[in-house]
Simulated assay, not measured.
Amino acid sequence: MAKLSNKKVAILSTHGFEEVELTEPKKALEEAGAKVDIIAPEKEDIRAWKQKDWGIAVPVDHTLEEANADDYDALMLPGGVMNPDKLRLDKNAVAFAARFFEQGKPIAAICHGPQTLIETGMLKGREMTSYPSLKTDLENAGATWTDREVVVDRGLVTSRKPDDLPAFNRKMIEEIAEGIHSSAGV
């Protein structure tokens, strides 16, 4: 597995993220040596959704108002139904995500996580996957949707569901280790 000792990764999330879709990528990134910060619209802990009820609370390192995308090497977006639906309506969250596209930095999104990316308007011509219910939304945003456990397109890593986490984490770490993708910027 690639080493990320000099990399800093932002995980953008809010209440209602799917627990394993934040905790497992965060653990994989930290085990690879990355410094990981949880970024959220709110300062208080954010609560996970675990299958059919509320799960753990995760401390927020920086609010969106405090965070600067320029300070990070990559962005990770966990899924869950509530989390990305809230983030896509937050103009600061969308702007934060868009900055990673503009700079060609790696972005990883799993399950419903790509909903926030749709709002950036920067998915045209990208190959992606997601939870199947997002297929039409992604295609309407200009992406080509495919049903595979992990898809990588110019530094953008996407996966469908928690079962895909091992493949998602491997590809996310590979892309972050590669760094800036010069053809990734929009």
Rank of each mutant, 00 (worst) to 15 (best):
L77G: 01
K3N: 14
L75A: 09
V60H: 04
L117Y: 00
M82F: 13
P59C: 05
D163L: 07
V81W: 06
A69T: 07
V9L: 12
E139Q: 12
S159C: 00
S133F: 06
I118F: 02
Q115R: 13
T14K: 08
K7H: 07
S182F: 10
Q115P: 02
D147E: 08
Y72V: 00
P25K: 11
D153Q: 03
I39V: 15
E24G: 00
P25I: 10
A141H: 09
M128G: 01
A10S: 09
A40V: 04
K26V: 11
K91H: 15
E66W: 06
A32Q: 07
G104I: 02
A143H: 07
T23P: 06
D70A: 15
K7T: 04
N6R: 11
A28E: 02
F168R: 10
A32E: 08
K26F: 10
P132E: 00
M1N: 10
A74M: 05
R47C: 11
T63C: 13
G104E: 11
D90P: 07
K86L: 15
G80H: 06
A98Y: 11
F168I: 05
A57W: 07
D85I: 01
G33E: 12
T120H: 10
P162E: 00
T146F: 01
A34L: 14
Y131I: 04
